[in-house]
Protein backbone atom coordinates (compact mmCIF):
# COMPACT_ATOMS: atom_id res chain seq x y z
CA UNK A 1 0.00 0.00 0.00
CA UNK A 2 1.51 3.31 -1.09
CA UNK A 3 0.53 6.80 0.06
CA UNK A 4 1.82 9.89 -1.74
CA UNK A 5 1.04 13.37 -0.42
CA UNK A 6 0.96 16.36 -2.77
CA UNK A 7 0.29 19.91 -1.59
CA UNK A 8 -0.61 22.61 -4.07
CA UNK A 9 -2.65 25.85 -3.92
CA UNK A 10 -3.99 25.18 -0.41
CA UNK A 11 -5.21 21.74 -1.48
CA UNK A 12 -3.60 18.65 -0.01
CA UNK A 13 -4.01 15.47 -2.02
CA UNK A 14 -3.32 11.96 -0.73
CA UNK A 15 -2.84 9.46 -3.57
CA UNK A 16 -3.74 6.01 -2.25
CA UNK A 17 -2.50 2.97 -4.15
CA UNK A 18 -3.18 -0.69 -3.39
CA UNK A 19 -5.37 -2.48 -0.83
CA UNK A 20 -6.32 -0.60 2.33
CA UNK A 21 -6.96 -3.42 4.79
CA UNK A 22 -6.24 -4.12 8.45
CA UNK A 23 -2.67 -5.30 7.79
CA UNK A 24 -1.59 -1.89 6.41
CA UNK A 25 -4.01 0.45 8.19
CA UNK A 26 -1.60 1.49 10.94
CA UNK A 27 1.11 2.29 8.41
CA UNK A 28 -1.34 4.24 6.21
CA UNK A 29 -2.58 6.20 9.23
CA UNK A 30 1.01 7.23 9.96
CA UNK A 31 1.64 8.18 6.36
CA UNK A 32 -1.51 10.32 6.36
CA UNK A 33 -0.33 12.37 9.36
CA UNK A 34 0.66 15.35 7.14
CA UNK A 35 -2.97 15.41 5.93
CA UNK A 36 -4.26 15.52 9.50
CA UNK A 37 -1.75 18.28 10.27
CA UNK A 38 -3.31 20.32 7.45
CA UNK A 39 -6.92 19.48 8.18
CA UNK A 40 -8.05 23.09 7.74
CA UNK A 41 -7.37 22.86 4.01
CA UNK A 42 -9.23 21.10 1.22
CA UNK A 43 -8.22 17.45 1.40
CA UNK A 44 -8.56 15.14 -1.57
CA UNK A 45 -8.34 11.42 -0.95
CA UNK A 46 -7.49 10.27 -4.46
CA UNK A 47 -8.61 6.64 -4.76
CA UNK A 48 -7.98 6.13 -8.47
CA UNK A 49 -5.51 3.35 -7.68
CA UNK A 50 -7.13 2.09 -4.49
CA UNK A 51 -8.41 -1.41 -5.21
CA UNK A 52 -9.98 -2.41 -1.87
CA UNK A 53 -11.05 -0.90 1.45
CA UNK A 54 -11.89 -2.68 4.71
CA UNK A 55 -13.51 -1.39 7.91
CA UNK A 56 -10.05 -0.29 9.07
CA UNK A 57 -9.75 1.81 5.93
CA UNK A 58 -13.19 3.32 6.48
CA UNK A 59 -12.09 4.30 9.99
CA UNK A 60 -9.03 6.07 8.57
CA UNK A 61 -11.25 8.01 6.15
CA UNK A 62 -13.48 8.86 9.10
CA UNK A 63 -10.53 10.15 11.11
CA UNK A 64 -9.62 12.48 8.23
CA UNK A 65 -13.23 13.64 7.98
CA UNK A 66 -13.41 14.40 11.72
CA UNK A 67 -10.12 16.32 11.67
CA UNK A 68 -11.34 18.37 8.70
CA UNK A 69 -14.68 19.10 10.38
CA UNK A 70 -12.89 20.25 13.54
CA UNK A 71 -10.70 22.62 11.53
CA UNK A 72 -13.30 23.92 9.04
CA UNK A 73 -11.64 21.91 6.32
CA UNK A 74 -13.21 19.87 3.57
CA UNK A 75 -12.69 16.28 2.40
CA UNK A 76 -13.30 15.06 -1.12
CA UNK A 77 -13.10 11.34 -1.89
CA UNK A 78 -12.21 11.10 -5.54
CA UNK A 79 -12.46 8.31 -8.11
CA UNK A 80 -13.43 5.31 -6.02
CA UNK A 81 -13.94 2.12 -8.03
CA UNK A 82 -17.27 0.29 -8.17
CA UNK A 83 -16.40 -2.20 -5.44
CA UNK A 84 -15.43 0.53 -3.00
CA UNK A 85 -18.51 2.55 -3.94
CA UNK A 86 -20.60 -0.50 -3.06
CA UNK A 87 -18.85 -0.76 0.32
CA UNK A 88 -19.60 2.93 0.90
CA UNK A 89 -23.25 2.30 0.00
CA UNK A 90 -23.60 -0.81 2.15
CA UNK A 91 -22.26 0.98 5.23
CA UNK A 92 -24.01 4.32 4.72
CA UNK A 93 -20.65 6.01 4.12
CA UNK A 94 -21.77 7.28 0.73
CA UNK A 95 -23.88 9.91 2.55
CA UNK A 96 -20.95 10.75 4.77
CA UNK A 97 -18.45 11.94 2.18
CA UNK A 98 -18.36 14.23 -0.79
CA UNK A 99 -17.62 11.53 -3.36
CA UNK A 100 -16.58 12.87 -6.74
CA UNK A 101 -15.28 11.67 -10.04
CA UNK A 102 -12.41 13.45 -11.84
CA UNK A 103 -14.70 14.52 -14.64
CA UNK A 104 -17.07 16.29 -12.22
CA UNK A 105 -14.54 17.32 -9.55
CA UNK A 106 -14.00 20.94 -8.57
Amino acid sequence: MEVKIIEKDNVITALLKGRLDTSVSQDVATQLQPVLDNAGKTIILDCKELSYISSSGLRIFLTVRKAAAANNGKVIVRDINNEIRQVFMMTGFLNLFDVQESSTAE
Binding site: S54, S55, L58, R59, L62, V87, M89, M90, T91, G92, F93, L94, N95, L96
Partner: peptide, 21 residues
Protein backbone atom coordinates in the same frame (compact mmCIF):
# COMPACT_ATOMS: atom_id res chain seq x y z
CA UNK B 1 -31.41 -5.30 2.62
CA UNK B 2 -28.74 -4.42 5.18
CA UNK B 3 -28.38 -7.99 6.40
CA UNK B 4 -27.97 -9.29 2.87
CA UNK B 5 -25.39 -6.63 2.05
CA UNK B 6 -23.15 -6.70 5.10
CA UNK B 7 -23.99 -10.06 6.68
CA UNK B 8 -21.36 -11.94 4.68
CA UNK B 9 -18.70 -9.23 5.00
CA UNK B 10 -16.44 -8.30 7.90
CA UNK B 11 -17.57 -4.65 7.76
CA UNK B 12 -17.95 -3.61 11.38
CA UNK B 13 -18.63 0.10 11.04
CA UNK B 14 -21.78 1.75 9.68
CA UNK B 15 -23.09 5.29 9.62
CA UNK B 16 -26.42 6.23 11.19
CA UNK B 17 -27.65 7.12 7.71
CA UNK B 18 -27.74 3.42 6.77
CA UNK B 19 -31.14 2.93 8.44
CA UNK B 20 -32.90 5.79 6.62
CA UNK B 21 -31.09 4.94 3.39
Amino acid sequence: IATYQIGLTDLDIISSSLGPQ
